[in-house]
């Protein structure tokens, strides 16, 4: 029962991140509006929010005209705690543009929804528009409730951050072990290093497959397709193919020594090329992944304390689990080697 502590830690962390990421409520946010197109004159629209606690007493709704000026709206009715009916008037000669929606209230803080409305019946020039600019200054309020940050389109599935993303961290950790083992094998010719490389690639591939499948499911319900042309996804697929090729290569060589040597050469070569790929790919194409290529980033929220409290432990927990499974695989390889080939490694 040596080294029990980190296995206990792994279990505790896994329990912690699962409970935390499935029970902490999602912060409030705006989901959408009933009709995006605006007409000149008065408009009455419904705005749907999520997890918000709207109250007639302190709710303010604004339309962003530009960075600093806002168009006032009149709150007609709070239909439900998360649904509000507002009305506002566009000036006669308003230009064609889209409007962001901002909502303020004391319990939920500021909720922001980009490009909620668009106006397409006006002129293209923005001069001489008599905006009915709000005199009330809009101050950003912060939601003080303990919650996971709200993201448009992603909604609750932001919790996948604690399950899908660490799969890749774990895979890279394991493939890294494989690389080091391969280099040490070529340097020393130690058979146990070859077994380490094999076991780490095998377990790494499991996490790679899990990452691919979970990523595909998540993509389907945020981007609308099972597979999209995205550098992260392409990188993941190439990683998978390369390591499957590694396993095929191993199976195609009979002689033990030769197999170990050649597999190690291929592993090093493949890892370096993979590294190049993962460096080069993101520069080449727009990514749909959050935080890349002008997407609504987690960046703002990565530093969000609530997420940080659970994302880092999640990465550690999954890496520990991966390492644990890798050790089991490795021990099995060792016993097989000892029993079938009478080699102590």
């Amino acid at each position: 029962m040596r080294h029990l502590w980190w296995k206990v830690l792994c279990g505790l962390l896994l329990a912690y991140i699962t409970v935390f990421s499935l029970t902490v409520p999602l912060g409030p946010g705006v989901i959408g509006v009933d009709q995006a197109a605006l007409t000149s004159g008065e408009n009455t629209r419904l705005i749907q929010t999520y997890n918000a606690h709207l109250d007639a007493a302190d709710l303010q709704v604004f339309l962003g005209v530009d960075d600093s000026s806002y168009l006032c709206t009149e709150i007609l009715e709070i239909v439900e705690h998360d649904l509000v009916k507002v009305s506002f008037t566009l000036p006669e000669n308003a230009p064609n543009k889209s409007f962001n929606v901002l909502m303020n209230n004391a319990t939920d803080g500021t909720m922001f929804f980009p490009n909620a409305f668009r106006y397409a019946e006006g002129s293209s020039s923005s001069e001489n528009t008599a905006w009915d600019i709000c005199t009330v200054s809009v101050e950003n309020q912060f939601n003080t409730a303990f919650s996971i940050p709200f993201q448009p389109i992603i909604y609750e599935s932001i919790r996948n951050l604690m399950f899908h993303v660490p799969m890749w961290f774990t895979m890279f950790f394991l493939m890294g072990i494989g690389l080091v083992a391969s280099i040490r094998y070529l340097a020393k010719g130690d058979v146990s290093m070859d077994l380490k490389a094999l076991a780490s690639v095998q377990v790494g591939l499991v996490f790679c497959v899990l990452g691919l499948i979970t990523g595909s499911v998540w993509a389907r319900f945020t981007w609308g397709a099972w597979w999209v042309n995205d550098p992260q996804l392409n990188g993941a697929l190439v990683t998978f193919l390369i390591y499957v090729a590694y396993i095929i290569l191993r199976n195609s060589i009979e002689d033990d020594q030769k197999r170990a040597r050649i597999a190690a050469v291929f592993n090093i070569f493949a890892f370096v090329i993979l590294f190049v790929l993962l460096m080069v790919l993101p520069r080449f194409s727009e990514s749909l992944h959050p935080g890349k290529g002008g997407n609504p980033a987690f960046n703002k929220y990565d530093l969000d304390n609530t997420l940080r409290m659970v994302f880092y432990p999640a990465v550690i927990a999954w890496i520990l689990l991966g390492y644990w499974i890798y050790q089991l695989r490795l021990r099995l390889h060792r016993i097989e080697k000892k029993y079938y080939y009478h080699e102590n490694v």
Partner: peptide, 19 residues
């Protein structure tokens, strides 16, 4: 439904099943 919570559920289930 319910703010895409089933997506999280299926992802967790896939990982558990896979392991």
């Amino acid at each position: 439904s319910s703010g895409k919570m089933p997506v999280v559920l299926s992802v967790v289930l896939i990982i558990l099943l896979g392991l």
